[in-house]
Every structure is written in structure tokens, then in C-alpha cells.
């Protein structure tokens, strides 16, 4: 593992850009993609399993079209988003096929298909997959769903009639917390009511009894 990392490092160090620019990044990524069409970052172990690269490879292999996948956490500002990166990569690589750029948690991704090969309506399929998965599903799950929708051939319909989106882990946790908070609040109100009744009713009974005694 360390040897492979060192190897990768040597290859990439040779590609230090002369100046900082997004196209330099595209150059770099293109170099990586030439050797392996699926690049998965190692900066996001909480969202990507250790074998994420292998799983993504298996998934896109089903598409039957050459696919380049870049899973990267680096998102730019407004003018240098994933679409520009795809265009630059296509320029550098000069190969047709499907290009996918997505962040490790599965959101904010883009896909484009170049060329006249088997058209899979990748755009609609990606939108449908993006909107059907919870926002923290992870890139592997989103790509799996994308492949499934694209292969079904009904990407347009799926996009128009989305399946209900499952809640994210954060949402589930927050909802559970809300419920627990409400339950705790109810129990506190119950305790308050019990204390009030216990403290008030005997006193009230005593006052009434006293009053009856003096007015009889």
C-alpha cells in the first residue's frame, strides 16, 4: 500500500504545474484518468468505503460505454464547477464516452456523454439518481442508482416521477431527537401536574372541610 502510494506520488510530482490554474488541474486529472479511468479520492473515508474504486468500476462497467469517473472533494467557486472540469477533461483526453464528476458524499455531481455511441440519456438519469438518493448517500450509491436508471431506458420518466427521497442520516437523527425531546417534555408536564395535584387537592379539601364546619 505504501509502495503504491509512493509510486503514485512520484508520477504526480513530475507533473507540478508551472502556474496555478484550473486547467493545470484538468491536465493532472487527465493524466491520472489515462492510466485508470476511475479516480476515487482518499480524502473522504467517512463517505467512501475502502473498496469504493472497485465498486464504482464494477458499476460503470455495466453501462457498456467507456466511462471516466472522478470522485473528488475539491469544488470551486461559481465559475469553475464540475461542468467546466468535464469539458477540460474531454479536451485533454480526447475520448468519447460518459464523464462523471461527483463529490464523495454523492451530491453536486455532473455527467455528460460525448460521442455517438449507445445513448443512454445520461443527463436525466443523473438528475433522477441525484434527487432520489438522500444527500449524504455517498458517491458509490449514487453512481449505482445512476447506472440502474440509465440502463432501464426510462430515465426521462424516472426523472419526472421521482421515487420518494429517503431522509439523510442527519435528518433521521434530528427527528429522533425531536421525538425524544417531546416525550421528555410530556413527562415533565406530567410530573408537574402530579405535584400540583398532590399539593393542591388535600389543601383544597381541608379548606372546604373547615368552611363547612364553621357554617353549619
Amino acid at each position: 500500500m505504501e509502495g503504491l502510494a509512493a509510486c503514485l506520488l512520484v508520477v504526480v510530482c513530475a507533473a507540478i504545474p508551472a502556474s496555478a490554474s484550473p486547467s493545470a488541474r484538468a491536465d493532472q486529472l487527465a493524466a491520472l484518468l489515462r492510466r485508470d479511468p476511475v479516480y476515487v479520492t482518499d480524502h473522504a473515508p467517512r463517505a467512501l468505503p475502502a473498496d469504493a474504486a472497485a465498486r464504482v468500476k464494477r458499476s460503470v462497467a455495466r453501462l457498456g460505454v467507456r466511462t471516466f469517473v472522478v470522485v473528488t472533494p475539491v469544488t470551486y467557486g461559481e465559475d469553475q464547477g464540475p461542468e467546466e472540469l468535464i469539458s477540460l477533461l474531454h479536451d485533454r483526453l480526447d475520448r468519447d464516452g460518459i464523464y462523471i464528476v461527483v463529490s464523495p458524499n454523492g451530491s453536486g455531481g455532473e455527467v455528460r456523454q460525448f460521442g455517438t455511441g449507445r445513448t443512454l440519456n445520461a443527463d436525466d438519469a443523473w438528475i433522477a439518481a441525484d434527487l432520489e438518493m438522500p444527500y449524504d448517500a455517498g458517491a458509490v450509491a449514487v453512481i449505482d442508482r445512476f447506472v440502474e436508471i440509465a440502463l432501464s431506458g426510462r430515465a426521462r420518466e424516472r426523472r419526472d416521477n421521482l421515487r420518494p427521497r429517503p431522509p439523510s442520516r442527519t435528518r433521521i437523527s434530528l427527528d429522533a431527537h425531536d421525538r425524544a425531546e417531546r416525550r421528555a417534555e410530556q413527562r415533565e408536564h406530567l410530573a408537574f401536574g402530579a405535584g400540583t395535584a398532590l399539593g393542591g387537592v388535600p389543601l383544597l379539601a381541608f379548606l372546604i372541610w373547615r368552611r363547612r364546619k364553621t357554617t353549619r
Binding site: 413527562r187 415533565e188 405535584g195 400540583t196 398532590l198 399539593g199
Partner: peptide, 16 residues
């Protein structure tokens, strides 16, 4: 849920 303080508040103050 913190039960002791609302119970005592009701018992000694609000109830009477």
C-alpha cells in the same frame, strides 16, 4: 426529562 424539579415546584408552590 428532569422530573424532580417540576414535581417539587407543583407540590410546594403551585399546588397550594
Amino acid at each position: 426529562a428532569e422530573l424532580k424539579s417540576p414535581f417539587l415546584l407543583g407540590l410546594f408552590l403551585i399546588g397550594p
